[in-house]
C-alpha cells in the first residue's frame, strides 16, 4: 500500500527543548494510533504534519506534496486539536458553518455539510445552543465534527477521546472505525493504551520525542507484556491469597501493603495471573474490596522499555 504521510528525519526543537527527534515514518491509509505519555511529542508530531509548525530538520510530505504553506493540501486534511478551545460565543451551528466557509464552500454546500457532520456526531438537536453551554462530551464531538465536515481524506485527531464518558468514547471509536472502512487515513493520538487498542492494530509508540516502536498491536503488546505488572488486591484474607499465588512461576514477587489488608503482586504474565486470581477468589470465596494496578500506566511501561 502506498504511504499517504511520509516523514523523513523529522526533528523539532523549541529553543533548547527537544520536541521531536529524527522521526522517519510512512503512514498508510487506515487508522494509526499514536501512543505515548504526556509530553512525549505526539502533539508536536501532529502539528508538524498539519503544517502548523515548521520542522527544525527533516521533511513532511502528504500525498507526496510538501505541507508547509500548501493551502490546496489543507482542504484534504481535517484536524481535531487537543485543546478544549472554541469560539465560545458561537453556537455549534455557527462554529461549524464558519469553518466550512473558510474552506471555501458555497452557502448551500456549507449548510448540507454542516447538517451532515452534526448528524454524524449527534449534535443536531443542540446546534443552536451556545458552545459555552455544551458539556465536555458535546464539545469533543463538535471538535470532531469540524475535522470531518469538509470530508477530508486525512483525518488527524489529537487526543479525541479525552474527557468523554464511556458511552461517548464508544460512539466516537465506532465513528473513527467507519472512516477506516471508507479508506481514509486517520491518525489518533492518545496516552491511554486501551483507547488506541480499541481503535486500531497499527500503533506508533512515541516517547521523549522519539519513535520507540512502530508496528502491529501484537508486537507492541509483546513489548509491553515483557514489563512486569504490579497488581494490588485488597481482600479479607491477603495472607492466604499470597500463599496460593507464590507457587506460580509468572508471579515474580509478593509483598503486603502498608495497611496489611492488601497484597501486592508483581507478574510478567498479566493474562495468566488474572485468570488464576479469579479462580482462587471464587474457589476460596474471598471478599475483594479492590483490585488496582499501581503502575499500570503508559509512563511506567515506557520507563521500563527505555530502561529507566
Amino acid at each position: 500500500m502506498t504511504a499517504v504521510i511520509e516523514t523523513s528525519k523529522l526533528s523539532k526543537w523549541y529553543g533548547n527543548v527537544l520536541g521531536l527527534s529524527d522521526v522517519s515514518l510512512e503512514i498508510e491509509p487506515g487508522v494509526t494510533g499514536l501512543l505515548g505519555p504526556n509530553g512525549a511529542g505526539k502533539s508536536t508530531f501532529l502539528k508538524l504534519i498539519t503544517g502548523q509548525i515548521r520542522p527544525s530538520i527533516g521533511t513532511v510530505r502528504i500525498f507526496d506534496q510538501k505541507v508547509q504553506n500548501n493551502q490546496a493540501l489543507f482542504s484534504r486534511i481535517g484536524f481535531c486539536p487537543e485543546h478544549d478551545s472554541f469560539y465560545e460565543e458561537m453556537t455549534g451551528w455557527v462554529f461549524l458553518t464558519s469553518l466550512l466557509k473558510l474552506q471555501g464552500f458555497s452557502a448551500g454546500e456549507i449548510r448540507s455539510r454542516a447538517e451532515k457532520a452534526l448528524d454524524i456526531v449527534e449534535l443536531s438537536a443542540d446546534k443552536d445552543r451556545l458552545i459555552r453551554a455544551y458539556s465536555r462530551g458535546m464539545r469533543q464531538r463538535l471538535k470532531f465534527a469540524q475535522a470531518i465536515a469538509h470530508d477530508p481524506e486525512v483525518i488527524i485527531l489529537d487526543e479525541p477521546l479525552s474527557g468523554l464518558d464511556p458511552l461517548g468514547k464508544r460512539k466516537l471509536i465506532r465513528l473513527i472505525k467507519a472512516y477506516r472502512e471508507e479508506g481514509k487515513t486517520v491518525i489518533v493520538s492518545s496516552h491511554v493504551l486501551p483507547e488506541i487498542e480499541a481503535l486500531t492494530r497499527t500503533i506508533i509508540l512515541i516517547h521523549q520525542g522519539k519513535v520507540f516502536a512502530k508496528g502491529d498491536i501484537h508486537y507492541i503488546r509483546d513489548l509491553i507484556e515483557s514489563h512486569p505488572h504490579m497488581v494490588s488486591i485488597r481482600c479479607d484474607n491477603p495472607r492466604g491469597l499470597a500463599g496460593q499465588l507464590l507457587g506460580e512461576d509468572y508471579v515474580l514477587k509478593v509483598r503486603f501493603g502498608p495497611d496489611r489488608r492488601s497484597v501486592l503482586v508483581e507478574t510478567n504474565n498479566r493474562d495468566k495471573f488474572f485468570a488464576l486470581l479469579l479462580s482462587l477468589l471464587v474457589k476460596n470465596q474471598m471478599e475483594v474490596e479492590e483490585i488496582t494496578s499501581p503502575d499500570d500506566n503508559l509512563q511506567a511501561v515506557f520507563d521500563y522499555l527505555v530502561g529507566k
Binding site: 498539519t50 493540501l73 482542504s75 472554541f86 473558510l102 471555501g104
Partner: peptide, 14 residues
Amino acid sequence: EGKTLAYLITRPIP
C-alpha cells in the same frame, strides 16, 4: 489566548 488558532491555520487560507 483562546487557543483557537489551530482551527484557522489548518484551513486552506493564507
